[in-house]
Design a protein around this nucleic acid. Structure first.
Lengths: 207, 207
DNA sequence: CTAGAAATAGCACGACCGGTCGTGTTACTG
DNA sequence: CAGTAACACGACCGGTCGTGCTATTTCTAG
């Protein structure tokens, strides 16, 4: 059945979130789905195929949990801000039961060979998302909410860092101030990226 | 022999760096050390013991690679800066052949039970290092190089984030600009944490 | 109601896992 | 010289891994 495969994938994303790529085992996934290992395996060509499917499904969930709500916000700095807010701890909000599989994969596969398909998929997902952030940041610049001279790649780079930092702080350290810290850092990042107030430029209107 | 155990540990830190905690396997470690699995195992009570020893050794290496050189620099902002510079990519500089095992462990064990000994060790290592960073930052404040009104925990938090971000950017993304980006972000962090220049005394206008 | 297709289970495989056990070698001790 | 303790070894334990091959069940079409 078509929907069995979907059920497996839907179950699997939770396991992936909780246990990481290496923790996704055919046996565990089968048990969790209430199937035999071979019955489950018949739906996929290989374990790698399972991992790729799970990453794709993870991306789909992130799309609806993080990106779509953000795109409903008004373009510019507001949209960027909503994106960041939704981004933090999104896997928990989506009910995955664990952390962000993509962030986890960064550390699991950082030494994997360049042509590893799972690594490549992970890289593609990340670059695509960073591209989106870049676009949103550029929009905020066009709206005059961020400085025209802003180093946009650097801005995006730092924004991604705040997410990673929050992930560790929130999930490993379990610091209750993690989310507050991340927002504060983001606010600082935005503030120092804004055009000079009251100065010569005409593009003034911020926030 | 005493030195056999040391040889195992010395070999193991490389494996830990390359493959993460889960990748440290008695069999692989034995092969790599040129021993039989059982011969190797005789030196430890359990695999967990091996992991703890490897983490300790990793800490020792970090001590000489990162911390000791930094402590030779003049106290204050300079020392903090040297620490940060040495910190970035330290595992490579130390010849471990992989990434930072501590950073990797954050993502591997973020869902581990609170009383997991390996998780606890990792946490202790991190908190100790953050404590050191806090002390150095406080020193820089005392030297008047950072603002007296600085939110020091937030400063340290952001500094740790820059390290994580660099790790991903450098090792997974393999962005050649990673280190430049990290330094740039650190400079910005320092700049906005400095006391107002030329102006009055503490509590400057560093909004 | 039955033929065939699709989905699932059963089973076996070789490899590796963490860990145990008995044995042989070596070097020091009395 | 005999005794002994440290050390490393190969064989092996019960399990789990990914992955095939072959039944069996279940669903659907005529």
């Amino acid at each position: 059945m078509k929907q069995t495969r979907e059920r497996i994938v839907a179950e699997g994303v939770g396991l992936l979130s909780k246990s990481g790529l290496a923790g996704v085992t055919l046996g565990v996934l089968a048990t969790q789905t209430g199937m035999s290992k071979s019955g489950l395996f018949a739906h996929f060509k290989s374990k790698e195929e399972v991992q790729l499917q799970l990453l794709d499904e993870t991306a789909r969930i992130a799309q609806t949990t993080v990106i779509q709500p953000a795109m409903k916000a008004p373009a510019g700095l507001q949209r960027l801000r909503v994106m960041f807010t939704r981004w933090l701890g999104w896997s928990e909000k989506a009910g995955l039961g664990g952390g962000c599989a993509v962030a986890g994969g960064f550390f699991e596969l950082d030494d994997a060979p360049e042509n590893d398909p799972v690594r490549q998929r992970l890289m593609a997902m990340e670059l695509e998302f960073r591209q989106l952030l870049t676009t949103l940041t550029n929009d905020a610049v066009k709206h005059g909410e961020l400085s025209a001279g802003l180093d946009v790649p650097q801005f995006v780079w730092e924004m991604c860092g705040l997410y990673l930092n929050h992930h560790v702080s929130y999930r490993f350290i379990r610091d209750p101030r993690a989310t507050k810290r991340a927002h504060r850092a983001f606010d600082e990042l935005v503030k120092r990226s804004q055009p000079a107030k009251g100065k010569v430029r005409a593009a003034g209107r911020r926030q």
